[in-house]
Structures are given as C-alpha cells and as structure tokens.
Nucleic acid binder design. Sequence first.
DNA 1: TATTGTTATACTCTATAACTATA
DNA 2: TATAGTTATAGAGTATAACAATA
Lengths: 158, 158
Amino acid sequence: MAAMTASEKPRPAGTAGLRHSLLGEDLSFLLARANALSLTAANSALAEHGLKARSFSVLALAVYDTRPTQRELAEFLRLDPSQVVALIDDLEKRHLVERRTDPADRRANVLVATDAGRALFARAQESARAAEADLLAGVTPEDRQRLARILRLLAFPD
Amino acid sequence: MAAMTASEKPRPAGTAGLRHSLLGEDLSFLLARANALSLTAANSALAEHGLKARSFSVLALAVYDTRPTQRELAEFLRLDPSQVVALIDDLEKRHLVERRTDPADRRANVLVATDAGRALFARAQESARAAEADLLAGVTPEDRQRLARILRLLAFPD
DNA sequence: TATTGTTATACTCTATAACTATA
DNA sequence: TATAGTTATAGAGTATAACAATA
C-alpha cells in the first residue's frame, strides 16, 4: 500500500459512490439492473425444473386458456418467431406442450399445455413465486402494487 | 377463412387476451418487458452517437467524478470484468476515456473521461433523455418518482 | 400477394478459465 | 496467496433472410 501524497485526491472506495452518480438516478439504468437481478433469481429458481424464464413464460401462456399462436407468443414475449420455434421444440420434446394447427387458419399453430405441462408449471410457479418474494423482501405490499401498475403502463403503452 | 362449427371454441384474437393471463400479472415479466422496450429505445437513440446502452453507461461513470476502477464498473453494471475490457477498449480508441493506473494500487486502472468524452456524453445524454421521456409519456410525474424509488429498492437491495 | 411457421446463418452477448503484474 | 486486468474461447441469446404451406 503506497503512502498517499497531497497531490493524490482520495478516491471513494467501492461501488457505493457510483450509486449516487448520474446513472444511479437514471430510470432506464435502474430498470435494467432490477431486471438483471430478477432474471438471475428466476433462472436459478427455475433450473431445478429444467426451465428458464423464457421457457417458463411460454409454458405459462400455454397453460393459460387463450391458446396463443406462435406469432402471438413472439409478439407478447418480444421474441423473434424463429426463437419461439426452438423454445416450443424443447417443451414439446418433453411432452409439456403440444402444437395444434388452428382450424380457423391452417397456417397457424396453437399452443396447448399437456397435463404433465400443467403439473410441472404449478411446481415451477411455486419456485418462481418464492424467488420473487425474496427479491421483493424490502418492498411494502402497497409499493408492490404501485410498481406493478406503473410497469404495466411502460410494458403495454397502448 | 373456414366456417366455424359449434365444436370449435373461438380463440381470442391477438395478444390482448394474453395480457390478462397469469404472466400479465407477474412482476418479473412486466419488469422484463418494460426493460426490453426501454433498452431498444435507448440503443436506437444512442446509435447516432456511436454508443449503446452499455457504452453509454461506462461513459457516464467515467464522466462522473468518482474515478471508478474497472472492477467497480463491472460490479455496478453487473458485467464480467472481461466485458468491461472490451467496452473501455472501444471508448479509449475513440479518445473518449483514458485508463490511468491507480497510484494507490498499481494493479488497478481508474477510468477518466476526456474532454471529447464529456462533450459526446452531454449530447448523447440529451438523446437518451428524449427517448426516456417518450417511454414515460403515459406516466405521471408522481408515478415516475415512485417508480424510481421502488426500482432503487430492487436494484440495490442492501 | 401476404402471412405462419421453419431453417440456416451470422452476429452479439455472456460465462469460464488461464495468464501477468502487482499486492 | 490473493486480486486487477487481460486474453481466449465456447456457449447462449439475437437478428436476418429465405423457403414451404396456406390465406
């Protein structure tokens, strides 16, 4: 450890100082960092079920009764349609979901969950909920509701 | 368009139905979708300055006076130290930042912005602000403050 | 002609391990 | 012995264009 001379201004140690920098006030950055932490926690919680946030989301939409087409999944999850193919391929190989051709438009595949898919989803959802609860430990119930409401405005701006 | 028989339940068209599914209520998903939109908007706004959200963040922290080490940058931005190397390499080649070896610890590099870096940052920040304002168009000033406060709890949970 | 799903491909991003110089 | 930065590399994620089947 070198001695500090008068000409060397002391540097604030650690990342605590950065938190009060320009970026620490920036909404986009806070959003990105909060999301990164949330995603990491979710992926690690879902790993024991052989899922990630992506495949969990697809499974969730299959379990729900709207029977989305792959195109709708892609738009909703903000993925390219070609990525949805790979995600569904994996889930279908594991017999968690099935592709059914939409009788109203035979070009389109409608996604439905199998019983095994519903069962796995129920278990995975518990893990995801626990991880989310952990992430939200420092946030009051009122603030959680506020956060959800405001994020919905950002996520669906129409 | 095939005629619909009685046995075929009508499928809600479009993604509007998905919004009220299990996922549409999920905070992690809303966070991910809001962040995806924010990131896309930021990257496209910063492109004219030759920056992306990542390099803009690094530049912002260099401009700010805390003179962070690369290690601190990596931790704060949740990047691997090896990724920070590449980001700084690019900015340094463009003479926007400089690496200075920390006199207190000659292993560490401290990042400082050049005058050109500060000038570019000021311009880029304007573009970023405009993009963020656009994203937040539907959110009241009170809700923006609430959002920032709550996101800070999630982003820095200590 | 336009759209859905698919395939192929390239590009970026991310994660890991090893190396060097300093501590 | 441990840490900061660097390099190399492989894996995951992303974006784009072209194709077959259907509208």
